[in-house]
Simulated assay, not measured.
Amino acid sequence: MTSAREEVLRRVRTALGETRAPAPQVARDYRATDDRPAGVLLDVLVDRLEDYKASVLRCGPDDVAATVTAALDAGLGTGWTPASVVAAPGLAEAWRPGGLDTDDDRPPVQLAERAAAVTAVAVAIAETGTLVLDGTPACGRRALSLLPDCLVCVVTADQVVGGVPEGLARLDPLRPLTMISGPSATSDIELERVEGVHGPRMLVVVLVS
């Protein structure tokens, strides 16, 4: 006796016949780079992120740690403590406020108890307002960006590209990529927006330029 799967596949093969047409070539004539000046791309990224209800704080290279502190104040209020925040293990020391805990592959249930996480990004796509984390030490494991209620991401100007093709060209497709466009949100049939269902309710971006 043949299984239902085998029967379906047999009928598909019969319908296709012995000679199968080669797969058509995929058109690659889409725009792969963005010629807009870097300053314009940064403004576009900020506009998209804020449209998605993320907060953006801009700073210079020497003020990152202080701005990360301000970002945590914005996300958690001024009463947060370093013990309530966990940072990606490879996050630059110069970007860390004093006393932040470092993620050490603790069980996810313990990560969920933290109020916020601080990570870097692999690339930021201006046109779509998307931050991409790739699981490297600076970005941390995927759970780090999903379980705490507030996520602070540090983005440097040289990581910002115009469009998706340019962003993907910078990434290793074999890495565990997490693409973030604003805080976690969904809506029901009545279009009632609910935040924090499957990720952080708050996203604060520190843009270094």
Rank of each mutant, 00 (worst) to 15 (best):
T67D: 02
G196F: 00
G135I: 02
Y52T: 01
V154G: 00
D188H: 01
R96C: 10
L42E: 01
V121K: 00
R175F: 05
V118A: 04
A120G: 15
D62Q: 07
L41K: 04
L131W: 01
D105G: 15
Y30E: 11
R11Q: 12
G99A: 10
L76W: 08
R170T: 11
G167L: 00
P107E: 06
V56N: 01
V68H: 05
R20H: 14
T69V: 10
R58G: 06
E195T: 15
T136Y: 02
A94Q: 09
D134F: 03
G182S: 01
C59F: 00
P22L: 15
D62P: 01
I189A: 13
V46K: 07
G60P: 02
E195K: 12
R48T: 01
R142M: 11
A169S: 14
C153K: 08
A185F: 09
E192L: 11
R5S: 11
P200K: 02
T136K: 03
V118D: 02
A185M: 10
L45T: 02
V123G: 04
V206K: 02
L151M: 10
A23Y: 12
L133C: 04
T19C: 13
R141Q: 09
P22R: 14
C153M: 09
G99D: 06
L146F: 09
G79Y: 09
G79A: 15
I180S: 04
L207P: 00
A32L: 15
V46N: 03
A74P: 10
V118G: 02
A70F: 09
L191E: 05
I125A: 03
G162D: 11
P22Y: 11
L76S: 07
G17A: 13
R193D: 11
W95H: 14
E127Q: 14
C59S: 03
R170P: 13
W95F: 15
G79D: 14
A83I: 04
D134T: 02
H198I: 04
G135Q: 02
R20T: 15
A117F: 09
D51H: 08
V164A: 05
T78K: 12
R193H: 11
A117V: 09
I189F: 11
T14P: 10
M202N: 12
G182L: 00
D73C: 14
V86N: 04
L45V: 03
V132K: 01
V68I: 12
E166Y: 12
V155S: 10
A115F: 06
D103T: 05
D29F: 08
G39F: 00
S3I: 12
D51N: 08
L151T: 09
G163F: 09
A74I: 09
T156Q: 14
G182M: 02
S209T: 08
E166A: 14
V205Y: 07
G79V: 12
L9F: 12
V204R: 06
V40Q: 13
V56R: 02
A138W: 03
R13W: 06
G199I: 05
A117Y: 07
T78H: 11
V46G: 05
T128C: 01
D47V: 11
